[in-house]
Design a protein around this nucleic acid. Structure first.
Lengths: 196, 196, 196, 196
DNA sequence: AATGAATGAGTGTTCATTCAT
DNA sequence: TATGAATGAACACTCATTCAT
């Protein structure tokens, strides 16, 4: 059973996610988030110590959802290729909807020297490694089943995330609309294929 | 011949680049830039309308340098693979030095909805396309010479830029040196290779 | 018989006294007092209209205790000198324990122009006069019994309170530890003594 | 020659003194001080790090003026009694004008546990001791000249400062003019007198 | 052209107070 | 009676921008 408190907390995180994603940390005001959530500014501080903690919580939640999804798909009975396609499709769509690659692949900020980022960095790093591990596991299974050639699975996993990012940006940058994410994914899978 | 004005302008841009790269747009204060440049805050406004324009100028300059380098390498007589490796090496090193992937590959910000980004976006988009065109040209040459299989060169070019980005982040994310940029790049090139 | 209501009220006042004394009016939060009392913030408002009224009540109670004590000692059968010594000892100890000269002699705040102080001022004034009257009575008795020379008893009473204050502060300000309150009191009593 | 900067700084301190004295630290807003000084809020921060530093500066300045005055009077050729009377008269008048005993004798706050007071405390303590030393010196001279009996001069000095305070409060507490500052002071001096 | 003191709009955060339960 | 979540007014402080010199 969900208490009201948890509900409000989640509501704030969800609204904050959308705004942080669109505006970034600094342009986002606490007032914006409160208004979007339909609560008073002060109320937000009952749930989060300060703006930075909220940001960290949003990232943590966002990663959690992502990692849960990875686990879920990993357990399904499909070829590794299909699993990776499914995940990529889902995530690219999510990013398109949010209009932001946001945290999940926003490793940019990792180098910002501000206080906030110093707090976010270890969390992101830890979670990112978790993600990479799960993806690497899927890739290992694919190697075992001869779907892929023998490659270092962690390297391939990182490259996979990179490919998803490209799949998102292709919508904004490359003009011809006929290009779609499948073309980019094909590029990735080709790199993994066994040479005939 | 370079006037003093041009000299000051360039000096500001160079100092601003370093600070913007490290701190990001919002954390960077006009005072920081002025101090780093060794001029007064007010002076900065003689050269740039406002902080946002300075940011735009910094990006433009940064892209210009990048595009010039691309043109230069493109003209050299090497295999396309070697050209792309050379560029990737150079850029990853630059990013490591700046401790930031900064603009060049910071397509993230492209979706930020703030005023500044609205000004930056078309410029970045335009320049990014210019970059992609040159890289696509190199890839096309590779396809012609049977180095690469037949793929959409613009898509591959975007994927190439993302891969460079990943090659940079590997240093921060996966601390164990078992994964390095070359492994990531190799995976990318493999995706382009013809199947035997 | 004491109702539960009265009990809670008194408990709040006692806790508030300690906190107000240590932190002052503004640094003390209603939440602090509620927590120290072991009640909810809202409950406090069932007993006191607002923070200022609580403050006023605390002062009133504090004065009441002081005045009751004065009456009590006044009735005892001792020389006036002994009565005054007894009172001074008791009060200096209390202040040292509270680590604050607090209200009793904190006429400072009397000049603060804030709303709260406007409410507190007449109460403090009234009660202070009551105190001074009782002390003056003790002094008058001393004069009658030739313990003291003829002086205006109200003036002497005020000076007596002043002396107690000095007795407290001497602990914090004058470095040599060998000085104690008795030395200060001696200074006071000497002023009252008849010249031989 | 006084620079403009020094002038503004002093102006801020003077205005702040009046407001802090009347309202206390917490009720005083930075906006109030800025407005009274005739400058913008931001300008104030060019001269003082924050509200607390301004407060500290105000206290320091206030003590400086007081200590300078003590030194000045101490050097004059009068009896010690006359010196102490002169100082008391001057200070009580100043306090009446400021409508606040403010810092000089506001030893109350010395026990407040807030951050600000933690910064102020050592400064006040140090300056207070300086004051007490000068007054003690005057008292010692009085003892040497047989004006006063043998008493611990530092204790007497502290008591003297408290008496001045009382001399000020008499105006607020006992409205009927039957008690005035001179009566209180006389009582103090009597305590110092040698018994015939 | 260059300065840097002055500005004031904008923001994060606190906390006394209320009110539905 | 008691609660404590919710409120929002109030305030300290920052910083891009201006302008008199």
């Amino acid at each position: 059973m969900r208490t009201k408190e948890q509900h409000t907390r989640e509501k704030i995180i969800n609204c904050a996610l959308r705004i942080f994603a669109k505006e970034g940390f600094f342009k986002t005001t606490v007032a914006d988030i409160a208004q979007a959530t339909g609560i008073a500014k002060g109320t937000l501080y009952l749930y989060f110590k300060d703006k930075a903690s909220l940001y960290v919580s949003v990232i943590e939640e966002h990663f959690k959802v992502g990692i849960d999804y990875l686990h879920e798909v990993e357990k399904e009975s499909m070829t590794s290729t299909k699993k990776l396609k499914k995940i990529a499709d889902e995530w690219i769509d999510t990013m398109i909807q949010l209009k932001s690659s946001f945290f999940m692949f926003s490793m940019e900020n990792i180098n910002l020297s501000s206080k906030i980022m110093k707090a976010v960095k270890p969390i992101m790093n830890f979670r990112l490694k978790e993600m990479i591990d799960i993806i690497a596991k899927i890739i290992e299974q694919g190697i075992a089943k001869k779907e892929f050639r023998k490659i270092e699975p962690h390297v391939a996993a990182l490259h996979y995330l990179n490919t998803i990012r490209t799949g998102f940006f292709v919508n904004f940058i490359v003009p011809k609309k006929q290009i779609d994410k499948n073309e980019i994914l094909e590029l990735f899978f080709n790199g993994l294929k066994r040479r005939r």
